[in-house]
């Protein structure tokens, strides 16, 4: 029995590139620098429901093989709201989640988030909403990364990371207590390689079409 993978290195103490401006800046006590990460990788999903746990399982694999010290690993589990807080201080964000779109189990969808989150900030009396394209990507658990993204954009304001990529892996089996199905496990390993390459080479993740 071991503890959960440590969430990367402790929050950095170097000055952020820009002074924080979003509501989340209220969190910083005087004299304590806000968090700063080159990249944050977030795995969402419910470990108790078969393939829905592929995101958190991938985070454990990444913790085991190791990532650069300035990369934060976040097991987002089923806590959507806190996924938004976890994006704080990250220059780029990679999200991995399970999906049910009707595609073959194991299909990998790679989605630049700027296509999913409406560009306009919420105006007075108008709660922010996702774009209609979200309706085509229903999630097998209730708390969805897309809602977290919309919330994070509100919470973080000008500090909302501009470089966000979402990997969705089509789930096969969602039975309580089930292991990952072979197709989803293979896809998870592919996504793991893609993420490690991304982190190593700092390529522009929003370019090109990498869908399976």
């Amino acid at each position: 029995m071991t503890a959960e993978p440590a969430a990367g290195a402790p929050p950095g103490h170097g000055p952020a590139a820009d002074a924080p401006t979003g509501l989340a800046a209220l969190l910083d006590p005087p004299g304590i620098a806000p968090p700063s990460w080159t990249a944050t990788v977030i795995g969402c999903g419910n470990l108790l429901r078969g393939d829905d746990g592929v995101g958190p399982v991938l985070i454990r694999h990444l913790a085991a093989v190791g990532v650069p010290a300035d990369v934060r690993l976040v097991d987002g589990g089923t806590a959507g709201l806190d996924t938004a807080f976890a994006m704080r201080g990250a220059r780029r964000v990679l999200i991995v989640d399970a999906a049910r779109t009707g595609a073959a189990p194991g299909t990998i969808h790679r989605v630049p988030a700027d296509q999913l989150v409406a560009a306009d900030p919420p105006s007075a009396g108008t709660p922010p909403v996702g774009t209609p394209s979200l309706a085509t990507l229903p999630q097998p658990h209730a708390v969805r990364w897309d809602q977290a993204l919309v919330f994070a954009r509100w919470l973080l304001g000008a500090d909302f990371p501009t470089d966000i990529v979402v990997y969705l892996i089509e789930a096969g089996c969602l039975d309580p207590g089930a292991d990952l199905t072979p197709a989803v496990r293979r896809s998870m390993e592919r996504v793991q390689t893609m993420i490690l390459n991304d982190l190593a080479t700092s390529v522009d993740l929003t370019a090109g079409d990498h869908d399976a």
Partner: peptide
Amino acid sequence: VALSAGPIEVYALFGGQWPHSSF
């Protein structure tokens, strides 16, 4: 809502992360 995350940062200092820690 924003300040509600403060106590969670305290939790994470000891537990590594929240909410799904097993420390």
